[in-house]
């Protein structure tokens, strides 16, 4: 499973949706994921890829990790995974 599929799977599970219903352009808000769902998703991503995601719930917009859409999250995770490799 590649990064894209895995991230979508994690987000879909959090949103209680089928992965096929999660589109790259969706925001987390579109998917009904709240602040707790977000930190849980980030935790799941960290565990799945063995990476550390720079994210502070107090200032999401200032975090280096872009969460503005599913596509943005996939890009950010891809970046972190490649840095680690």
């Amino acid at each position: 499973m590649n990064v894209r599929e895995k991230v979508i799977e994690i987000i879909a599970e959090q949103a209680v949706l089928d992965p096929s219903d999660v589109k790259p352009e969706h925001t987390l808000e579109d998917l009904g994921i709240d602040s707790l769902g977000l930190v849980e998703s980030i935790f799941a991503i960290e565990e799945a890829f063995d990476i550390s995601v720079p994210f502070n719930a107090n200032a999401p917009e200032e975090s280096e990790f872009d969460i503005s859409s599913v596509e943005a999250i996939i890009c950010a995770v891809t970046g972190l995974v490649s840095q680690q490799a």
């Binding site: 935790f43 994210f55 502070n56 719930a57």
Partner: peptide, 20 residues
């Protein structure tokens, strides 16, 4: 730490630059 609401530098209540 897991909750991601902690500041890593200082507690700045009511301040625009507060971060946890």
């Amino acid at each position: 730490e897991g909750l991601r609401v902690m500041s890593k530098d200082a507690c700045r209540p009511f301040c625009a630059t507060r971060n946890g």
